[in-house]
Simulated scan of single mutants.
Amino acid sequence: MISLDEAVTARLETHGERFEVLVDPDAALEMKRGEFEGDLEDVIAARDVFENASRGDRPAEEALEEVFGTTDPLEIIPEVIDRGEIQITAEQRAEMQERKERKLINIISRNAINPQMDDAPHPPERIENALEEAGFTVDPMETAESQVDEALEALRPVIPIRFEEVTVAVQLPPDYAGSGQAKIREFGELDSEEWQADGSWVGVLTFPAGMQNDFYDLVNEVSEGEGETQIIKEKGELDTR
């Protein structure tokens, strides 16, 4: 469960009654969109349903039975989140917006390249400044991922930018293949892999072009500089939808 200090109120008004639950705003919004994959315990700050959460008042059991057909809070809470509204203060909205903005900038910085500078990645500071210049405002009630396409459209008149992906083959020597391949395969989409007769491992991965330096650093780290890489497919535009 989250702390009460971090929680906001999800409120459902129906049948002349008001029902409130205390939730994590981001997780509750994901649950409303059907995108949340965690446990209910990760969403809530209390296993309780209130008539007025700020005062700690609880609704009558008869009202719970009439509206939800149960008095079990763990069955009622998801319905309040799904059917109700997430109540956030101006301060909480600003905090959510800042958090989503940082995540959006990180996504773009790690995935995008500058086609006018030898496909070099854009540093986060450049993305942040360009978004500000473009007048783009992050919606705190939507996921950062869902706003990437709109942000890119706003950025293109300001800076040269493109989302691309690259396919790279990597070979790890026998002494590093066992533990190293487990970390390498998590970096991107593993297209294929093969164990060689000498115990070495060869994998082919596709990942955002802006992450090439991170990938090469990882290969060097897990193989103590003895791993080999080779680009086997030229960069292609990455579908961000």
Rank of each mutant, 00 (worst) to 15 (best):
M1Y: 10
M1W: 05
L4H: 13
L4R: 15
E6M: 13
A7Y: 09
L12E: 05
T14Y: 03
G16F: 06
R18E: 15
R18W: 00
F19R: 03
E20M: 06
V21H: 00
D26A: 14
A27K: 13
A27C: 08
A28R: 00
E35Y: 11
E35D: 13
E37D: 12
I44E: 00
E51S: 14
N52F: 06
N52T: 11
D57W: 10
R58Y: 06
R58I: 09
A60E: 13
E61W: 03
E62S: 08
A63Q: 05
L64Y: 07
V67E: 05
G69A: 08
G69N: 09
G69R: 11
T70D: 12
P73V: 01
V80C: 02
R83D: 09
R83A: 10
E85Q: 14
I88D: 01
A90Y: 08
A90P: 13
E91W: 02
E91M: 05
R93P: 00
Q97Y: 01
R99F: 02
R102Q: 15
K103N: 11
I105M: 03
I105C: 02
N106F: 08
N106D: 14
N106L: 11
I107R: 06
I108R: 01
S109L: 03
R110Q: 13
N111D: 05
I113T: 09
N114M: 11
M117G: 05
D118S: 12
A120Q: 14
P121Y: 01
P121M: 03
H122G: 04
P123Q: 06
R126I: 11
I127L: 03
A130N: 02
E133I: 09
G135C: 11
T137H: 11
T137Q: 14
M141P: 00
E142S: 15
E145C: 01
E145K: 08
Q147G: 06
A154E: 10
R156T: 13
R156F: 04
P157T: 06
P157L: 07
P157M: 08
V158S: 01
I159T: 02
P160M: 06
P160G: 06
I161W: 01
E165N: 08
E165I: 02
V166I: 15
V168A: 03
A177V: 05
I184H: 01
I184W: 01
R185I: 14
F187P: 00
G188M: 06
G188N: 04
E189D: 15
E194H: 15
A197Q: 12
G199R: 08
V202F: 04
F207T: 03
P208V: 07
A209G: 14
G210Q: 03
M211E: 15
M211D: 12
M211K: 12
Q212K: 15
Q212I: 12
F215G: 04
D217V: 05
D217K: 12
L218D: 10
L218T: 10
V219F: 00
V222N: 07
V222Y: 05
S223E: 07
S223R: 03
S223T: 15
E224W: 11
E226N: 13
E226F: 13
E226H: 11
T229C: 06
I231R: 14
E234K: 08
E234G: 10
D239M: 14
R241M: 06
